[in-house]
Amino acid sequence: MAYLSDDVLRFVRAVGPQPDEVLREMDAYAEREGFPHVGPEVGGFLRFLAGVAGAKRVLEFGSGYGYSAYWFADALPDDGEIVLTEVNRELLDMAREYLERGGYGTIATYEHGDAIETVERYDGPFDVVLIDHQKHRYVEALEAVRGKLASGAVVVADNAMSAADVVVFEDLLDHVEGGSPDLNEGTRGIAAYLDHVRADPAFETTVLPLGEGIALSRFRPE
């Protein structure tokens, strides 16, 4: 579900950072295979965000075939690091191939397996974190990485407004406005995440209607 009109979406894509040849190939793959990637408008924003944050280390909970990681990688310094996590070995192998073709192989670390179990093996700090895996585990992911966030770090949660039939926007809206809708598992997961991060005084949160919605939470510990 897109929250921008076709004309506005075209405008955002035209004004924002332009995908290179590899990203255009990745976009074509997503369209051909029906793969739910974040798309160039969110990808361009992620690259912009990492650059503005001066990020050196980025962690992804759920990397798929490396689309968002590729956008992030372009904003990182030569001694930076992006950690990709993915349970599907074939997708992770695709991510490795794409990032190496883009010249980012030296700053990418590829972790096959459960993302939350993986992050336990890492020390911080991380400057940007993307949560984009199982919706019912978003809160668990945030808590798993919380102690590894740099002061001022930004946590990005994808599908903050919808995700095909997994997250239902109308029910989510009813929930955040104080209603008591009957939520499916995916919508409950996003609702729980938004409730959790908004109630935490260490985070300042907003939502942007790019793609299927991204929640941005800036970490400001006391």
Rank of each mutant, 00 (worst) to 15 (best):
P209Y: 02
A53D: 09
V197N: 08
E97C: 15
K56R: 12
S5R: 06
N159P: 02
A202F: 00
V139G: 10
H133K: 06
G189C: 09
A69N: 10
V167A: 10
V129P: 00
A192P: 12
A50G: 15
F45Y: 09
S68A: 11
G178M: 02
G16H: 06
A55K: 07
G103D: 02
L208G: 07
F169S: 13
R57I: 03
I107F: 06
G105P: 09
V15A: 14
Y110A: 11
P17Q: 03
D123M: 02
D6I: 15
D27E: 15
L59W: 05
E143S: 08
G102M: 02
V87L: 11
E117C: 01
H136I: 13
Y67A: 02
P77L: 09
A115I: 08
R13Y: 00
I190L: 11
A75R: 04
L46Y: 10
P17R: 04
L130G: 02
D93Q: 15
E143R: 14
L173N: 10
G66R: 01
Y67S: 03
A69M: 14
Y104I: 09
N159C: 00
E90D: 15
E185W: 13
L173V: 07
A144C: 03
D79A: 03
D7C: 05
E100M: 05
V38Q: 10
L210Q: 01
I82P: 10
V119F: 04
L142D: 12
F203E: 01
W71M: 12
T205L: 10
E204R: 09
L183K: 07
G64R: 15
T106C: 13
R188T: 04
H196A: 14
R121L: 10
E212L: 05
M94N: 09
P19G: 05
L216D: 06
L99C: 15
Y29K: 15
S217N: 06
E120W: 01
L130W: 03
D7A: 14
Y98P: 05
Y65F: 14
A199V: 02
Y122I: 00
E222C: 08
R146E: 12
L99R: 15
V129H: 00
E100G: 08
H196D: 11
E185T: 13
L130M: 09
A202D: 09
V155K: 00
D165Q: 11
L92Q: 09
V176P: 12
I107E: 05
N88I: 12
H112G: 12
D78S: 07
G105Q: 09
A144G: 02
V119S: 03
V83A: 04
